[in-house]
Design a binder for these strands. Structure first.
Lengths: 237, 237
DNA sequence: TTTAACAGAATTGTCGACAAAAGACCGGCT
DNA sequence: AGCCGGTCTTTTGTCGACAATTCTGTTAAA
């Protein structure tokens, strides 16, 4: 029984339990959006959602403002908020930014990672590898495992703001991008090779190489995504 | 006639006049923070500010949440919001991110810029150059002119999300960093050479070179900033 | 049939008031 | 004198209600 651990990428700020209602609802709505429970492009009805969450409109509006800050909803004055809907070019934009930023994170990580850090990274990969071998491994990999690896790298970079930017904002958008093309052709073996090569570079402290490898890794993921989107568009037509 | 347009870097979203009170107050507070009218680290008192802006606490709280999204204030539950205060390492973090992101923007701009775009860029530089020759040129350059140039580059990249990220968030933080070291030793001639070299690369459509030059340009700015901060710290002791 | 205007409903924006928590202040104790 | 506990004040969090705007559905006219 795999019982995919479902690593809670949402509870990034561990130990900081949301106390205010607005924060709580913000977290719930964010998860609902990135999990697809809120359809992209759908309108957000304040009275309805307020009663649904059992709170007043005040905290709900604050939560919506925070969602706007996370770029997950768009607010138009006097017209309400809508869940963001990403098209192909916007997805590409996100991957371009991610390529640049994670390249940076990977370079910094390579320059700072200790032997212990490297060992943990490698352990993570082998754990994922074992997971892959299980029945629904592919799904797991595409969902949590991949982000988990990247999450660790960014964490090792030591740049707190970079971490907030990537793990607090961009990764949520990324999950939205992936949601569209839910059943990906899954290129796990290739991605695994790339992951291991990245860890190799980090172990050797070769920041420049680690940066390039990570950029290429994400560029490959982007290509896969674009391919999937194109195919999806054709089916729709 | 230069007629430096004095692009208002604060009113980024031109044409979109803020209609709701919360949006209006958000803009005003953001400008007040980046201009230094709100001291970094100072506490935000809701009742006081609400009466000061002549609004209720509801819209004010929404504005504060948006400021939190822009990373300009920090909110602690049941403790209120404080204007962000950047220390040396945080400033370095911001410059690292900016180096990576503007490098990307510059590469994309080089790949997409038309001859007309290049002409406008060069015009901008010559206009700034003329401005520099005037009495308070150095001050002008450090304040608006430099950001103006970078603003144009990012705009040419064609990546809307990158634009929002840099011009909508990071540049405001940048102004906060610069505010600390208000009287900079101003390296205008060197920065000007770098700017021209960047435009050269863009004109030639050499994205890779443009990216590297921009990264080095920002890395140099970072060095200058760090030097200033260190000097400031010594004076304080 | 299409368009335009109008009335009604629904939704968003704003406000003041109450409840709860944090912080300040003061007195007493070791 | 310094520290601790309790009370009071201030500030934040939450709520319900009202005002203003937008959306909708209907009717009437071209």
């Amino acid at each position: 029984m795999p019982e995919i651990v479902d690593i809670p990428t949402e509870n990034i700020a561990v130990g900081a339990k949301p106390k205010t209602l607005a924060d709580e609802v913000f977290s719930q709505m964010r998860d609902a959006i990135v999990c697809g429970d809120f359809a992209p492009g759908s309108k957000i009805n304040e009275p309805q959602l307020a009663s649904q969450y059992g709170i007043s409109r005040g905290p709900l509006r604050e939560a919506i403002r925070r969602l706007e800050g996370a770029k997950l909803v768009e607010i138009k004055p006097n017209a309400g908020a809508k869940v963001i809907s990403l098209n192909k070019s916007q997805a590409i934009e996100i991957y371009e930014i991610r390529e640049s930023l994670e390249g940076l994170a990977c370079r910094l990580a390579a320059e700072k990672a200790s032997a212990e850090d490297c060992r943990r990274l490698r352990d993570l990969l082998t754990a994922h590898e074992a997971q892959i071998q299980s029945e629904d491994g592919r799904l797991y990999y595409q969902k949590a495992g991949d982000l988990d690896f990247h999450y660790q790298i960014v964490s090792l970079s030591g740049n707190q703001r970079l971490f907030d930017l990537l793990c607090g904002e961009l990764y949520h958008l990324l999950r939205l991008c992936r949601m569209k093309t839910s059943s990906q052709p899954s290129r796990p073996e290739r991605a695994f090779r790339e992951h291991h090569h990245i860890v190799d570079a980090i172990e050797q402290g070769d920041g420049g190489l680690a940066e390039i490898l990570m950029q290429r890794h994400i560029a490959n993921a982007k290509k896969t995504l674009v391919l999937n989107i194109n195919q999806l568009d054709k089916e729709d037509n």
